[in-house]
């Protein structure tokens, strides 16, 4: 069956790269897939996989979602009712949290328990920018990676999960923070798989097999 992947377009960042990376994966692994960029709720409804990218500040991303008519309801139905595979990338992952302390206190989607907090500075350069090791916390089959891999990060805030079971992988930068989170069919990655070379493409492939 053809996979229908929709990259949600709500005015945030470089989504062309996200689309290209999914196209590349489907070509390389011979997956029959259609990869769309869309904010149309019909496209979302017809999808098999949804990707929520995100760049910039939490609030502007959340507002971007809210200001796209019908989108929050459509993704809620897709991920929370039908329980189809959903992937949040970077701020798209952070939006899954209950709230964020970036520039105030702002509510998120609240799909995975926890809060977005500032990375402690500890004389480290901010943002946390570049390639860093991501270590899986478990070997469960639901994980998106099976061994330590380098991924490309750009962020100054992190997802402080309330429940350990939602953390699939962690990364160290001043503190150890969750770099892959999940709850059932809902996944979030703090790094950019679309910018993480072959390791990133492998992770995308792993998501597409969910």
């Amino acid at each position: 069956m053809q996979k229908k992947i929709t990259i949600i377009d709500y005015g945030s960042g470089n989504i062309l790269s996200a689309q290209q990376s999914f196209i590349k994966v489907s070509q390389e692994y011979e997956i029959n897939a259609e990869v769309k960029i869309s904010n149309n709720h019909k496209d979302i409804k017809n999808s098999t996989h949804l990707v929520l990218p995100g760049q910039g500040a939490f609030l502007s991303c959340m507002n971007g979602l809210k200001n796209t008519p019908g989108i929050i309801d459509a993704i809620y139905e897709f991920a929370q009712i039908k329980k189809h595979p959903f992937l949040g990338i970077c701020v798209g992952m952070q939006l899954l949290a209950e709230d964020s302390e970036e520039n105030g206190n702002h509510k998120g989607l609240g799909w995975i328990n926890g809060n977005i907090k500032a990375l402690p500075k500890k004389n480290l350069k901010m943002p946390h920018m570049g390639w860093n090791i991501t270590t899986p916390c478990n070997t469960l089959s639901n994980n998106l990676i099976s061994q330590k891999e380098d991924f490309y990060f750009v962020h100054s805030y992190y997802f402080k999960c309330r429940f350990r079971e939602n953390i699939l992988a962690e990364t160290l930068y001043g503190i150890t923070f969750p770099s892959i989170v999940a709850k059932e069919n809902i996944y979030g990655v703090q790094f950019h798989p679309e910018k993480s070379s072959s390791q990133g493409l492998k992770l995308i492939k792993s998501f597409l097999t969910k």
């Binding site: 062309l16 790269s17 590349k24 950019h192 910018k195 993480s196 493409l201």
Partner: peptide, 11 residues
Amino acid sequence: VKETAKEVFIP
């Protein structure tokens, strides 16, 4: 840039 984005998956 558009063409590069199709082939290159690093920043």
